[in-house]
Nucleic acid binder design. Sequence first.
DNA 1: GTATGATTTGACCAAACGGTCAAACGCACG
DNA 2: CGTGCGTTTGACCGTTTGGTCAAATCATAC
Lengths: 203, 203
Amino acid sequence: MPKDRAPTRIQQKNRAAILDAALEVFSAQGFRGATVDQIATVAGLSKPNLLYYFPSKEAIHNAVLSQLLDTWLDPLRALDPAGDPLEEILAYVQRKLEMSRDYPRESRLFANEIVQGAPRIHDVLSTDLRALVDEKVVVIKAWSDAGRIAPVHPYHLIFSIWSLTQHYADFEVQVRAVLGDEDPFAATPEFMETLYRRLLAPN
Amino acid sequence: MPKDRAPTRIQQKNRAAILDAALEVFSAQGFRGATVDQIATVAGLSKPNLLYYFPSKEAIHNAVLSQLLDTWLDPLRALDPAGDPLEEILAYVQRKLEMSRDYPRESRLFANEIVQGAPRIHDVLSTDLRALVDEKVVVIKAWSDAGRIAPVHPYHLIFSIWSLTQHYADFEVQVRAVLGDEDPFAATPEFMETLYRRLLAPN
DNA sequence: GTATGATTTGACCAAACGGTCAAACGCACG
DNA sequence: CGTGCGTTTGACCGTTTGGTCAAATCATAC
């Protein structure tokens, strides 16, 4: 490993290639299912060369995961307490749906990790994630109490958004197997909007 | 391996113990993450002894999976075209929710398999599962066309039921991390009923 | 151009893994 | 109570895997 000076161009390029390859392989095979050789091959490097940039398989996994965690929660962070309640929630749903469509590997990486008990990110879930959700739950509850959206359990509302949107990335093969040729994302945005409009419309 | 006579009591007991142990380990670690030794230990057997009952790790996995596939689709099969539309769908949702609560290992086993591309059950998905869904979609569309439930995309309705209910099993650690001490299944049935009543109520 | 540090690699290692096998053990039945 | 078949296991094998290392190669600054 080089000194901790400013990274060279080669370092930048190779580290980026490794992280992308790791995302590809880990999301498709899970942590234990992935091999360092696979990641190295996808990244266009030899195995010892890859291990020159990251000290271990677990270090690569950690790097991919922590790089992702931030951006993954951005759509929820953007929920604006000052905005129109229904439109804010609908916009959040659409943002999450776009992420499932445009970044399915990232979604599946998390899915793999969480289905298997989140051994490596459990801490982040019960601290950062929980704090963020708690914060937004207060906002939603205020909207609900004020009658600006229909009364609804705010935690389960958020869970429903996560599960509905990520389903199209995490269970993509199943969705495709059932839909056949039809594009899984063709009718989905409209379905989501209908669902949440009917669920949340005041009165 | 013994002859293909009627299985002895020892065979029955050990095969059942192996299948249960395999469900435990595969659902928590995935196929590649699980080891034959782990399964043997959980089943209370030695590794060679386990391999006396099943020829390979993959054979165990297949056995667990195919034993499960049938019962897993029972809730959808039970959707009765002659019943009251809204009540039928609500009952289906509750059945699926009960399965997530009572058989989370089974749910996570499928989740693991499908997230990783369903390499071992892809055929069943695009034949048996697809046929069953197609059949029920016709029923739902008829209800919808007759105005007995609100108009809704029937495929996405079914996907939504799958994802919402299985979320509480597959992503249990995340749900628990966010909810803290609160029982994940306490408010869930009511949330589901509210959601689908508002989505599907006619007019 | 050459010295210096960054980068790359072939060869290698120890542990873990799926699976085999012959021998030992145990249980039921005559 | 002994014989035969079902059952169990310790020892073992070949392969895969994560990781190491010394030597070779490359890039760059002087």
